[in-house]
Design a protein around this nucleic acid. Structure first.
Lengths: 142, 142
DNA sequence: AACTAATTTAGAATCTTTACAATGAACAAA
DNA sequence: TTTGTTCATTGTAAAGATTCTAAATTAGTT
């Protein structure tokens, strides 16, 4: 069973309904190695699915987060980015261009408890100047 | 020279002006082990400094970030939290009550470059259920 | 085919953060 | 100490992301 089928099965099992809009969003996210914002998901899908609304994107992302099939990155204060790739890894945020890069740690450290607090997930964010922006000296893009 | 004097000196040296409002905010933050939001800083200081505006809090925080005397935590998507304590440490965010706890790593890992990207700072965020919320079974507070 | 509850939709509302323009004040130089 | 320039403050408006709402629709079940 592939990833998409796994997600659809989980949707059903948890009592959520499968709608064309949700299917479209799931297909968009499965295998996606980018970190799209809500607006990006919406505007990318809108041409092909004109019956899609931004509210539904928010709603579906909430469902997918609830069933543990995506994570939300609060790496920047301007908006939330979606991480569909649950393989444990870190992120680098370029303070100049705003791009987000995946960073793969040699070994993921993941304590289940820390100071008595129960840990559900961990996010490691690196901030700085990306390779691309180190080369050119043009002004910041955002 | 204590911490407060260091910050004041740095303000002057970098060409920024020292105003009563900025002094009040700096005094509020130096030694503060909490993670106040902009609104919290404003409402805590307002009674004693009625001539303070929220705009000035934002402005002063921007200055303090520029001179490297505070960090901003984007641990939650609802707002930015200020971290006045620059001793390198991590943070735990309780998904039930919203409290932020400091977490002190045994040894801080801090590469200056990763995949070629120049790293200026690192944030490690843990998410889960805090000690306090594990004990009681009352509904979430936010 | 009918039923019920979940979902979608568009738009309004909310909330945080930024922008703006007029007023005020810090700092340096005379 | 006074003056002048530039930066800072203030209050409000604007922007932008996210949430809420209520009516219409539809998925999944009977």
């Amino acid at each position: 069973m592939n990833k998409k089928e796994t997600v659809l099965k989980k949707i059903k099992e948890t009592g959520f309904r499968l709608t064309p809009q949700r299917l479209a969003i799931i297909e968009y996210l499965v295998g996606n190695r980018e970190h799209p914002s809500m607006e990006k998901i919406y505007s990318d899908l809108k041409p092909q699915y004109p019956m899609l609304s931004l509210s539904t994107v928010y709603n579906t992302i909430k469902v997918l987060k609830t069933i543990g099939e995506i994570q939300e990155l609060t790496i920047s204060d301007d908006r939330v980015y979606i991480e569909p790739n649950l393989d444990p890894h870190h992120h680098f945020f370029c303070e100049k261009c705003g791009r987000i890069y995946d960073v793969w740690p040699e070994k993921q450290t993941g304590p289940s408890k820390i100071d008595g607090h129960l840990v559900h997930s961990i996010q490691v964010y690196y901030y700085g100047l990306c390779v691309s922006c180190q080369q050119d000296s043009s002004p910041a893009s955002s």
